[in-house]
């Protein structure tokens, strides 16, 4: 990576106007993946003066600043209290502490990395993204959004609710990308199922969700059927880490186990 200027933004407004000045200006999150891009940039925009590294809560939601590190996120008592620790757990599975002290929640989301544990982990919850200039978008809409977002992610809003979450990262070793990652939730009595790293970015299994939510007091067979539906509606592909078939098999088992787990 080559950079001409390291720009310490004084405010969001300042950062935004700098970002618009050149297509080769870029926001600096944790900087971990930026390093691997081997591109050259005019300016790296440092957001550390913008106070985006706080976690707060209201009655309805938890608001996570985009510059909150993965480590601060997983350690936050507020985040830990959400959905039986499932959100914090999904982030805790990423690399080591010396990595998570750098990686930011905002950076993990904005990159829309297919292997993202943060994205897959957040998907089965009611999560929206707040941008500067003022704009709000659900996480799912952002994943489906075509093109590059040239505004600044300010915060991630996670709607509170009562219920449980489940997260499974199938992997080779602790430092591996997931072969496939599965997140399942039951919040306010509604089941949601997300599968990521297929190897494409996380997606919700809507047919399966529709089915399982239509069954009153579902049993083992119903969970099995929902898992079957989930893997059928989602696309799985081969890459060097796994065949599509194995991803399919793993996702089926873990969606079922996840549903069983959150139903308890």
């Amino acid at each position: 990576m080559k950079v001409n200027e390291y720009y310490r933004a004084s405010s969001l407004e300042d950062a935004y106007s700098k970002l618009q000045q050149s297509p080769k200006n870029v926001l600096l999150g944790g900087g971990l993946w930026l390093k691997k891009t081997a591109q050259s940039y005019d300016a790296l925009i440092d957001l550390s003066c913008c106070e985006l590294d706080k976690i707060s809560e209201t009655k309805e939601e938890v608001i996570v600043g985009s510059m909150v590190t993965q480590r601060d996120f997983e350690n936050s008592p507020v985040v830990k209290s959400l959905f039986s620790d499932a959100l914090a757990y999904s982030v805790r599975e990423i690399m080591g502490v010396n990595f998570r002290n750098l990686a930011t929640i905002g950076g993990s989301i904005m990159g829309r990395y297919p292997f993202s544990d943060v994205i897959a982990g957040l998907l089965p919850y009611d999560v929206s993204l707040e941008f500067y200039p003022k704009e709000t978008m659900s996480l799912e809409d952002y994943l489906n959004f075509k093109g590059k977002k040239n505004s600044i992610l300010v915060a991630v809003h996670i709607k509170k609710g009562s219920g449980k979450g489940y997260y499974k990262k199938a992997k080779t070793t602790a430092l591996d990308f997931p072969i496939v990652n599965i997140a399942v939730s039951k919040v306010n009595n509604e089941y949601r199922i997300a599968v990521g790293a297929r190897p494409m970015v996380g997606a919700l299994a809507k047919e399966a969700m529709k089915y399982i939510n239509s069954v009153s007091s579902p049993k083992k067979e119903d969970f099995e059927k929902a898992a079957e539906l989930a893997v059928k509606e989602l696309q799985f592909l081969d890459n060097k880490d796994s065949s599509a078939e194995y991803r399919y098999d793993l996702a089926k088992v873990y969606v079922r186990r996840g549903l069983e787990e959150v139903s308890k």
Partner: peptide, 27 residues
């Protein structure tokens, strides 16, 4: 490339991999 941890040091007492921290960011 932030994968092995050998270059770990502490910034404000937190361990980070120094191969992936821009020097400009630790002002």
């Amino acid at each position: 490339e932030s994968s092995c941890g050998s270059c770990t040091l502490l910034i404000e007492n937190k361990p980070v991999m120094s191969c992936s921290v821009l020097t400009a960011s630790v002002e």
